[in-house]
Amino acid sequence: MLIFSVFKTLTDQRVTVELKNDLSITGVLKSVDQFLNIRLDNIKVLDEARHPHMMAVKNCFIRGSVVRYVQLPAENVDTQLLEDATRREAVSQAKR
């Protein structure tokens, strides 16, 4: 739930999603779900020439399981808050 919550706070920010098949897509994060499936609007594909099938695509839905990384805007991430929330989540996980 923690990472899901982090992504929810980043909606409408521009992020770069790198997939496991080495495709990198920059776009505005429009939505995310509990599986960390991602919806991006207004996308730009890095190295477009290698991925011609993406040329006419402006918005996309990316299955969470194929994501390797998501590059986040550092200025919109409160690292202190994150660390505190992680510690709390770790404690509640252990109690289960």
Partner: peptide
């Protein structure tokens, strides 16, 4: 089957005609 899906892209029907292939 969903586990085989990487991504779903909305095809922009206007941009589709501009694709230089």
């Amino acid at each position: 089957r969903g586990e085989n899906v990487v991504l779903l892209g909305e095809i922009d029907l206007d941009q589709e005609d501009d694709v230089p292939l």
